[in-house]
């Protein structure tokens, strides 16, 4: 019982610390003199360097989902609904969430390990001594880059996965390029695209904040760096699912489903 209370208090303390860290992010982001050069540099690392991984995963996701869904729809005589079903699933849920989870793994752990290693080797202190605000230089630039890049990666993942879906449909069937896209987009509306896009900004923000928080507050030498990277992935992935759950409820309440 005492052990459970201790775990609970540690969890609440962690939540409070992340909230305070997020508050500091907002107070720093509105102050003038942003680190734009570092922001662009981070956009390149976060966005461009994750592009291949997201692209390949999205393609396989679209292809596999189409192939897996076909027998069930065939059973109900609704195989003509395949492009519509796949596109709605991919756009609303699967592509954004899978992209966010890949980013939580790659970006979250990368930021956590990088900042963690900078913390334990006193590089963050050195930055502060040299008159540079390390929070602004390291945290604000990375969180902004992640917030901007994850929606772009997600949009790209949607496009590539839909293309994968087209190939998947044509492995066993014969649907023209024109008809596939007509059916896919015919099933989609603004109510599918906009909530999906909005939630990816939150995903990106959460991945950036959690990765930076874990790395920036890393302790206990190299062991601490490893822990920061691992817990950044775990916490960021969990937060992605929580945001997704909230987004689905909000979308439902607003009647956008």
């Amino acid at each position: 019982m005492i052990h459970l209370i201790k775990i609970d208090s540690e969890f609440l303390r962690e939540v409070g610390e992340i909230a305070r860290f997020t508050g500091r992010f907002f107070s720093e982001v509105i102050k003038p003199k942003q680190e734009w050069e570092e922001f662009i540099n981070q956009c390149f690392w976060i966005g461009f360097k994750t592009l291949t991984l997201v692209g390949i995963t999205a393609f396989i996701m679209g292809l596999v989902m189409t192939i897996q869904s076909r027998p069930t729809l065939l059973e109900f005589g609704a195989v003509s609904m395949l492009p519509a079903m796949v596109s709605v699933s991919l756009v609303r849920e699967i592509a954004p969430v899978i992209t966010a989870l890949i980013c939580a793994g790659k970006i979250g752990s990368g930021i956590g390990a990088e900042l963690g290693s900078m913390r334990v080797t006193e590089q963050i202190d050195a930055m502060e001594v040299s008159g540079t605000n390390p929070f602004k230089y390291l945290v604000v630039s990375r969180v902004l880059a992640s917030t901007l890049m994850v929606p772009l990666l997600s949009s790209l993942a949607i496009a590539i996965s839909l293309y994968g879906g087209y190939l998947g449909v044509n492995i066993r069937g014969n649907v023209s390029w024109h008809l596939y896209w007509l059916q896919s987009f015919g099933a989609l509306g603004y109510g599918d695209f906009i909530p999906s896009l909005i939630k990816t900004f939150f995903f990106g923000f959460a991945i950036g904040i959690v990765g930076c928080y874990k790395g920036y507050n890393s302790k206990k030498g190299t062991e601490g760096v490893g822990r920061s990277a691992t817990s950044a992935v775990i916490v960021a992935s969990l937060v992605v699912f929580i945001i997704d759950l909230i987004a689905v409820q909000v979308t439902d309440l607003l009647g956008l489903t």
């Binding site: 290693s117 006193e122 050195a126 001594v129």
Partner: peptide
């Protein structure tokens, strides 16, 4: 701080 130099024990050179 511009007038005060600090040499860290771990050197604290930026790896990247």
């Amino acid at each position: 701080r511009a007038e005060v130099g600090f040499l860290f024990q771990s050197n604290a050179l930026y790896d990247s």
